[in-house]
């Protein structure tokens, strides 16, 4: 009941924020249509819908980090968190209250991307369902990252770190826009030490029914998701105790 009251409030805050909705749902769609239009006018295979769509769904989740971090940081700065810390809500109520409502939003973003991709020529098969299932682990990573930054940073800092750094890291080190083999070297090595490219390759493998290639990407994504969630919980509890 207590958890439901708090998570209900988080859902309303997110859905009533036009910036969240327009960026979270609109921006990935704009990119999908734009890059598909580019693909239609170039002779080489750069942004084929089959490999572009999983990449865009992962990139779109970087905005989820921004929104969740912004929501928590705003709550902290407005003293609403302070008020709620004096109520019988537990740490678990807070953490799941923030995280759980954002998960359906992430899935909704993913579903909308696939509907748009279908309009652009993506053949919808049962693998799309599996892409939704596997993206949950990716979403948990990005949501946890939002919880972590939201617990640590101010609203202004969240804008810079999540709005610029996380979205750019996801863009450049995920292999969405270009094949990382083209750059190679240290850039590729660093990219493969981070979860972004693994998330994209996981989703591409699932969508294309290439289930043998799910490994080792799923372990990278799940490992980062678990580690980030633990770090977020630790940081949130530290804030509560402070």
């Amino acid at each position: 009941m207590k958890f439901a009251a708090f998570s209900g409030r988080v859902t309303k805050e997110i859905l009533r924020d036009p910036v969240t909705l327009s960026f979270g749902l609109g921006f990935p769609l704009v990119l999908l249509f734009l890059l598909s239009a580019i693909q239609a006018n170039i002779p080489i295979s750069l942004f084929e819908i089959k490999s572009l769509t999983p990449g865009i769904t992962v990139f779109g989740l970087s905005f989820v980090t921004l929104f969740s971090a912004m929501l928590i940081a705003k709550d902290r700065e407005s003293a609403l968190t302070e008020r709620l810390f004096t109520t019988p809500l537990t740490a678990a109520d807070f953490i799941f209250g923030y995280a759980v409502p954002i998960l359906p939003l992430s899935l909704a973003q993913c579903i909308i991307c696939y509907i748009a991709a279908a309009a652009l020529g993506l053949k919808l098969t049962v693998t799309v369902i599996w892409a939704f299932v596997f993206i949950i682990s990716v979403a948990v990573f990005f949501i946890s990252l939002g919880l972590l930054f939201g617990s640590m940073l101010t609203v202004k800092q969240v804008g810079g770190i999540c709005g610029a750094l996380v979205t750019n890291l996801t863009a450049w080190l995920s292999g969405v826009w270009f094949d990382l083999n083209l750059v190679g070297g240290a850039f590729k090595k660093i990219a493969y030490l981070l979860p972004f490219v693994h998330a994209v390759e996981l989703e591409r493998a699932v969508l294309n029914g290439d289930y043998g290639n799910i490994m080792p990407h799923i372990w990278w994504v799940a490992g980062y998701a678990a580690a980030t969630l633990i770090a977020a919980v630790f940081m949130f509890l530290r804030r509560m105790k402070k």
């Binding site: 409030r9 609403l80 302070e82």
Partner: peptide, 26 residues
Amino acid sequence: ISPQETAVAPNLNVRENLILMCGVHG
């Protein structure tokens, strides 16, 4: 407690803010 800074949920209306506090108190 009514903290020093305004502590309301800005995107919830007045009634919803009050209902929120009822909910978190079970």
